[in-house]
C-alpha cells in the first residue's frame, strides 16, 4: 500500500517533469523559464535536506490540523445527522463557514492570530474539515436498516450504538475520506504559509517564487509529494488495521 503510493507519485511527478522538458526543448526555452535537467538535479540535491525539514514542519501542522478537523467533523456530523431543527441548523452553519474563500479569511486570521503556528493550524483545519464533514453527515444520516431494525424493535438502539453501526458499515469510505483529506490539510497549511507565515515549505516556495527559481519550486514539490504519499499510505494502512481489528 505504502510502496504503491510512492511509486504512483513518482510516475506522476516524472511524467510532469518530462512534459516540462518536452516544452523546454521543443520551444527552445531558456533555463529561466524551465530549468535544465542538470540544474534541477543540482538544486534538488542541494536543497533536499532543508526542504525536507520545511516539509516536516508543514506536515506537523497539517497532521494536527487534520486530527482537529476530523474530531470537529465527527462532532458536527453526528450532531447534524438527524433531520431535526438542531441538526439542520448545524448543517447550515457548517456549510456557511465553508462558503467563505479561505484567501479572504486568511488575512483576518493572520491579523488576529499573528503569523505563527495557531494561524497555520486553523487554516489547515478549515480547508480539510469540510469534505470530511460532508462524508460523515452522508454516512451518519443513512440508516443501516438490516442491523438497526433489530435493535430499534428491541428498544436497545442508543445513539452511540447507531453511530458505531454506521461507522463500521462504512469504514472503507471513512478511511478513504480521511486519507484524502490529508492532501487538503497539507494544501491548507502550504497556502497559509505562502500567504503569511515565516516557516514551512509554503514560505520557502514563496521565497523561491520571489527569486523566479523554478528549479527550487520543482524540488519543493517533489519533497512535498513524496512526504504526502508516505503519510497517505500510512493512513490507509492504519485504516486497514483498524478494520481488521473490528472484524475480529
Amino acid at each position: 500500500m505504502l510502496l504503491r503510493r510512492i511509486y504512483q507519485f513518482l510516475i506522476i511527478y516524472c511524467a510532469g517533469i518530462l512534459l516540462l522538458f518536452l516544452l523546454k526543448y521543443g520551444l527552445q526555452l531558456s533555463d529561466y523559464v524551465i530549468p535544465s535537467p542538470i540544474e534541477l538535479w543540482q538544486t534538488g540535491c542541494a536543497e533536499f535536506v532543508r526542504y525536507f525539514k520545511d516539509v516536516a514542519d508543514t506536515l506537523r501542522v497539517a497532521v494536527i490540523g487534520q486530527i482537529i478537523s476530523v474530531i470537529f467533523a465527527f462532532i458536527v456530523g453526528i450532531a447534524g445527522r438527524k433531520a431535526t431543527w438542531v441538526g439542520s441548523i448545524v448543517k447550515v452553519a457548517a456549510y456557511n463557514v465553508q462558503a467563505y474563500p479561505i484567501v479572504a479569511l486568511a488575512p483576518i486570521i493572520f491579523i488576529l492570530l499573528g503569523d505563527g503556528f495557531i494561524a497555520r493550524l486553523l487554516i489547515a483545519s478549515m480547508i480539510c474539515y469540510f469534505p470530511i464533514l460532508l462524508s460523515v453527515i452522508g454516512i451518519m444520516s443513512e440508516p443501516v436498516v438490516d442491523i438497526e431494525h433489530f435493535y430499534r424493535c428491541t428498544g436497545r438502539l442508543r445513539w452511540q450504538l447507531e453511530v458505531k453501526i454506521r461507522a463500521f458499515e462504512n469504514l472503507n469510505k471513512l478511511t478513504t475520506v480521511i486519507s484524502g483529506s490529508a492532501t487538503l490539510a497539507m494544501a491548507g497549511t502550504i497556502v497559509a504559509e505562502f500567504i503569511a507565515a515565516n516557516a514551512g515549505i509554503g514560505y520557502s516556495i514563496r521565497i523561491a517564487l520571489y527569486q523566479s527559481d523554478l528549479a527550487r519550486i520543482l524540488s519543493a514539490l517533489f519533497v512535498i509529494g513524496i512526504t504526502l504519499s508516505v503519510y497517505q499510505g500510512l493512513l490507509e494502512w492504519a485504516g486497514a488495521l483498524i478494520k481488521k481489528g473490528w472484524e475480529t
Binding site: 531558456s30 533555463d31 529561466y32 523559464v33 530549468p35 527569486q211 523566479s212
Partner: peptide
C-alpha cells in the same frame, strides 16, 4: 534583478 537573473539563465 529580474533581468539579471534571467540573463544568468540564458533568457534572451
Amino acid at each position: 534583478d529580474q533581468v539579471i537573473r534571467a540573463m544568468s539563465k540564458g533568457a534572451p
